[in-house]
């Protein structure tokens, strides 16, 4: 495949499949709501969903890539408690660049 082609029918099908399942995920919660009541232990579990999912998503880089990335993730998390979002992200990116110079 080269980048000169406009669109490939398999790629289009793949993109449409991705779009379909993603929209399904976006509205499934709305549909489920009609049947479930959220309280107690279920509520506690639901509150843990966003941090748990975000943590799982970044684990390969944050934990399983190298000491530079692991340290930089820690630094970013600390920065996030003190700085606005964009500044904290910049701190993370700059620290990973510096740390990679020292750790291979």
């Amino acid at each position: 495949m080269n980048t000169l082609h406009l669109i490939d029918s398999t790629a289009l099908l793949c993109i449409l499949a991705m779009a379909g399942v993603t929209y399904l995920a976006r509205i499934t919660g709305l549909l489920l709501l009609r049947f479930v009541k959220i309280e107690g232990r279920l509520e506690a579990a639901l509150q843990a969903v966003p941090p748990a999912i975000l943590m799982a998503v970044i684990t390969p880089v944050a934990i399983a890539t190298g000491p530079a990335e692991t340290l930089a993730t820690g630094i970013t998390a600390l920065a996030a408690t003190r700085l606005p979002l964009l500044a904290a992200i910049a701190t993370g990116v700059i620290s990973v660049v510096i740390l990679r110079l020292f750790m291979v």
């Binding site: 398999t10 790629a11 099908l13 793949c14 499949a17 991705m18 379909g20 399942v21 993603t22 399904l24 995920a25 976006r26 509205i27 499934t28 919660g29 709305l30 489920l32 709501l33 479930v36 959220i38 639901l46 969903v49 966003p50 999912i53 975000l54 998503v57």
Partner: peptide
Amino acid sequence: PLPIFTIAFATFLVNLRLVLMSFSLG
């Protein structure tokens, strides 16, 4: 050749959090 099913399934897994987000925000 693109593994469409695997990609769509992985997409759904990564985006399962949206189910919980819409469940909470709905």
